[in-house]
Nucleic acid binder design. Sequence first.
DNA 1: ATGTCACCTGGTAGGTGA
Length: 277
Amino acid sequence: MKLATWNVNSLGVRLPQVLDWLAAQQASGAPVDVLALQELKLTDDKFPADAFESIGYHAQWFGQKTYNGVALLSRTPASDIIKNIPGFDDDMSRVITGTVALAGALAGAPGVRVIGAYFPNGQEPGSDKFEYKMEWLTALRRWVKDELAAYPNLVLMGDYNITFDEDDVWDPVNLEGTIHCTEEERYHLRALIALGLTDSHRLFPQPPKSYSWWDYRDAGFRRNRGLRIDHILVSNALKRQVTACTIDKTPRKNERPSDHAPVVVEITPGPAPGSCE
DNA sequence: ATGTCACCTGGTAGGTGA
């Protein structure tokens, strides 16, 4: 089972690239089962559900004019949809959650709870937007704790706008303490991990200087001046079944690319707990 | 050393957010 997250920086602009990418994955023999999209930048009435349906995907979406906006695409329908963080009043569309069947699992096995999220950017430490980011992170953690208790198979993926540590930063010395790299943000990221989640990326050997975002300015991608801010966190129940995690830089080489690359995990259901190996 | 993109409003650019 393949799950992915991609901040497309305007689905209106990037739709052809998303369709192409999904088709290429399909052609490779390992189609994406679930894709979380961020920064749709379009209202719900403009969401191209037909285009996704025509290539075999169900969609759930939560749009917003100009900014934000998230969606979940899945090859089987998602159920129990939640938009944003329950109990946290927010006028931005940042989170969409649903349950999908665990492909390859035995019939009747519990599905996977998938949370797709576009974390606040935060602009700069000390700003109002940074304060909002901190409050949002606190609310997210409180809610994810409850979701984990209800759904042991859980994936939290999206654009976190936070690096874990210097390995996620192209210039850790000069960017220390700047947005995406502050101790306050990283505290919240570690606190999510402490709920019982694992960073899929670090379960496997990865190329050095692996990033998921490169600034459009200053030829950031060509010079690999990037940050790893897009993450796929998996619950402990799923961790043993994660068999791969990669950042696919291919779409970043397109004409008019998003500034983010998709991050992809493979989950291969093992034997049911208690069964003989 | 330098270097962007997308979207809005309200216009034939400027502002905002990232």
